[in-house]
Design a protein around this nucleic acid. Sequence first.
DNA 1: TTAGATGCAAAGGGTTTGCAACGTC
DNA 2: GACGTTGCAAACCCTTTGCATCTAA
Lengths: 135, 135
Amino acid sequence: MANKSLTRMTRQRMAILNVLRSTTSHPTADWVYAHVRGTLPKISLGTVYRNLNLLRDAGEIQELTYGSNFSRFDGNPTEHPHFHCTSCQRVYDLDFDAETELAQRAEKISGFKVERTRLEFEGVCADCLNSKKRE
Amino acid sequence: MANKSLTRMTRQRMAILNVLRSTTSHPTADWVYAHVRGTLPKISLGTVYRNLNLLRDAGEIQELTYGSNFSRFDGNPTEHPHFHCTSCQRVYDLDFDAETELAQRAEKISGFKVERTRLEFEGVCADCLNSKKRE
DNA sequence: TTAGATGCAAAGGGTTTGCAACGTC
DNA sequence: GACGTTGCAAACCCTTTGCATCTAA
């Protein structure tokens, strides 16, 4: 899981990790910033962002985005799984239906009302797998 | 699926929809803008954004983002489903494991290498369901 | 000692919005 | 004719980055 290792453990990094470990609220960077300032009033937003990215790269935390912070659009409005290639950045449609069953399972477990199910895969597509072989 | 209806069908809206319907590349707003300019050179980026949002709200297309265009972070780096409440915006962890099986299924179908699986639900959480009842 | 981290502030980049003119129904 | 839509440009807002200073190992 850990892809890159963190060489130094600074007070700032520790504080950010502590804040994240002590909540299940899936906070934004700004929320983390606000809360870390409780113990480190002089920390900067830039430091928060840098550490969030480093911690994510190290596999210590996960970032909830769809690959990037900008949108992609799909002309097909029906639910279907997507595959996002981390090498060429293409997004593929996958042709299998799991959403209905997953939604039912989620509703049963949580008691919530599911209105939309999203299944996304990340990895390397066939094209990129092949070009890596040739290298 | 269609929540809001589109009252007027302008040339711009039609062109944007055509571009989206004629590709499976899951383009960005900017890509759509560039391609629509082939037929409507004077269209503005603002119009593209406005129409993408309207078409999404009408259920004609879907937007691939994680609810918003900014990140949320999870102190738990292991794969697990999330539930995003569209009413209170909270993000919940869901406690069931489907990712491993789904990843295998996706690999079998696509021939791609899956490195990460993401399962996200959108809907209304128990708290919000209850407060709606009381209204 | 020194490579990596921080604070600060400015820059970046995708997205939204105010407004007057325009076009669809 | 009325009201939604467009073009344009400025504003927004989250995130990144340059630089001098500091600090963990």
